[in-house]
Computed example of a mutant assay.
Amino acid sequence: MAKITGNVLLRCVLTIALIVSVSSAVAPASSTIVCNVQMTDLLKCLPAITGAHPPFPTHSCCKVMRKVNLPCLCRYKPELAKFGANPVAAMAVPKKCGIKYVPKC
């Protein structure tokens, strides 16, 4: 497995965990759009970034990662550590999904 360096991927993927946690308390997930995708779609990636040994991101998670506005997700980075995301796993999701361009957050 290739080594991933930098904070960029971590910031973008960890944002998913924050959005899921914060937005579900504010509005129903099915009606909430965050960074160009439905909240329910972002939930598809949650298993791939949580726990000590998260599974490989699913095909549906990768589809979401390709549609989400990654620079938009960067805004949520400061809150992510509070929601139990595995930083190593979170950093790996975009690369595992084949995303080549990830903005610097």
Rank of each mutant, 00 (worst) to 15 (best):
N69C: 09
M39Y: 11
N36A: 10
L10T: 10
A52S: 14
V26P: 00
R11G: 13
L73Q: 09
A81L: 13
K95N: 09
C62A: 08
R66N: 08
M91V: 04
V34T: 09
R11S: 14
V8W: 05
P87E: 15
M39C: 10
V93W: 00
V102L: 08
H59Q: 10
S24G: 06
V102W: 05
V37F: 07
P54K: 04
L42W: 00
T58D: 02
L42R: 07
P94T: 06
R66T: 03
I33G: 02
L73T: 12
T58M: 06
K3C: 11
V8N: 12
L70G: 11
K67P: 04
K77C: 08
V68T: 05
A90W: 01
R75E: 12
P57E: 01
R75C: 06
P78G: 06
A27K: 14
V22T: 10
K67S: 11
V93G: 03
L43D: 08
A85H: 02
G84Y: 08
G51D: 03
C72Q: 05
R11D: 11
V37L: 04
C105M: 06
F56N: 12
K104S: 10
K104H: 12
G51I: 06
M39L: 15
I33L: 02
P54R: 01
L10F: 08
T58C: 05
S21W: 04
A52I: 14
R75D: 12
V34Y: 00
G84P: 04
K44Y: 08
H53E: 12
R66I: 00
V68G: 00
C35A: 07
C62G: 01
K95L: 13
V102I: 15
S23R: 04
P87A: 15
S31E: 11
M91A: 14
L46S: 00
A81W: 13
P94E: 12
V64R: 01
P71V: 07
P78M: 03
V34D: 04
K67C: 01
A2T: 09
K67V: 07
I16P: 06
L14N: 15
L18Q: 10
V8Y: 06
G6M: 11
T58V: 03
T15S: 15
I19W: 00
A90H: 02
C105A: 05
A52C: 02
C74P: 03
L9G: 14
R75L: 07
P94H: 09
L14D: 12
C62F: 10
G6V: 07
T15K: 00
V93M: 03
K100Y: 04
A2V: 12
S23L: 04
L42F: 02
A48N: 03
V64D: 01
S31L: 05
V102P: 10
H59A: 10
I4A: 11
A48Y: 09
V13E: 12
N7P: 00
P78S: 05
M39V: 08
K96R: 13
R11Q: 14
L42H: 00
C61G: 07
A85W: 02
I99K: 04
P28S: 11
I33N: 09
S60G: 02
L73M: 15
C74Q: 03
K3V: 13
P57D: 00
S21F: 06
L80G: 14
P55F: 13
H59S: 13
F56R: 13
K104G: 07
I4Y: 09
S23I: 01
G51Y: 10
C12T: 14
A92Q: 12
A2S: 08
V68R: 02
E79I: 09
K77D: 13
